[in-house]
């Protein structure tokens, strides 16, 4: 069953000067538990698509419907709340809060949700265990390697048990071993918790692991293949 539906999504940047059509009338849907890679050359619209699905950006035309909620109709604050409760984000540059430890970074999302301290501690310990770095719980990001930071980012993204996780080039800054480890962890979480993962990526390893690969070119869907 589709939990995310994109109806005729278009997004144009610089519309008054030199218009760049980042997305051009995209129709797409994602089912629960999918492990999808969105691929395409630079400038094909991958990040824009993820931003719009995640409610970070609004389409110029079309609707994004998640769990029967048209998120582009929500106000700014409602979108923030929606993201907090329903979407996990993983960024290319990890983007952890530098002054918080690994555990605190994971708990940060839960704290924003108003989850009690004991529950936060339990969940963060669970997740850091799941991503394989329980011993790094009290260490700050700058003392972690890139791969370890991205694992914390995965744990943070999953902290609130979101329906789906959006990952923008999650392996771009990682070495091969770290990237493979991370992908294995995400695949396991996808299978164990039935969390939907949507990646934008250039990484062949991600593409190989994905069960569905959507290829974008010039803001349009070129191919949509499910293995």
């Amino acid at each position: 069953m589709a939990i995310i539906t994109l109806n005729s999504i278009s997004r144009t940047y610089n519309s008054k000067q030199v218009p760049v059509h980042a997305l051009n009338c995209i129709d797409l849907s994602f089912d629960e538990g999918e492990f999808t890679a969105i691929v395409g050359p630079s400038g094909s619209g991958k990040t824009t698509l993820l931003n719009i699905v995640g409610g970070l950006d609004d389409p110029d035309e079309g609707d994004v419907v998640i769990d029967e909620t048209k998120i582009n109709a929500l106000s700014g604050n409602e979108k923030i709340k929606f993201r907090l409760h329903h979407i996990g984000f993983i960024f290319q540059a990890y983007n952890l809060i530098p002054v918080l430890t690994a555990r605190e970074n994971v708990e940060f999302i839960l704290e924003l949700q108003g989850v009690p301290k004991s529950e936060r501690k339990k969940r963060s310990a669970e997740l850091l265990e799941a991503v394989g770095i329980p011993e790094k719980a009290d260490i700050r990001p700058r003392q972690l390697s890139g791969g370890q930071q991205q694992r914390v980012a995965v744990a943070r993204a999953l902290a609130s048990r979101p329906r789906f996780v959006l990952a923008d080039e999650p392996t771009a800054n990682l070495d091969s071993a770290s990237a493979e480890n991370l992908l294995a962890i995400m695949q396991e979480l996808n299978q164990k918790e039935n969390t939907t993962f949507i990646f934008s990526t250039h990484d062949e390893r991600v593409v190989k692991m994905a069960r569905r690969v959507v290829t974008l070119q010039d803001g349009k869907i070129k191919t949509d293949e499910t293995s």
């Binding site: 604050n77 907090l84 409760h85 984000f89 540059a93 999302i109």
Partner: peptide, 16 residues
């Protein structure tokens, strides 16, 4: 700037 964007993206209200 990027740090603030991430905070808002992951669900932090701007007033917070």
């Amino acid at each position: 700037r990027a740090e603030f964007s991430v905070m808002v993206a992951v669900g932090m209200y701007r007033y917070k």
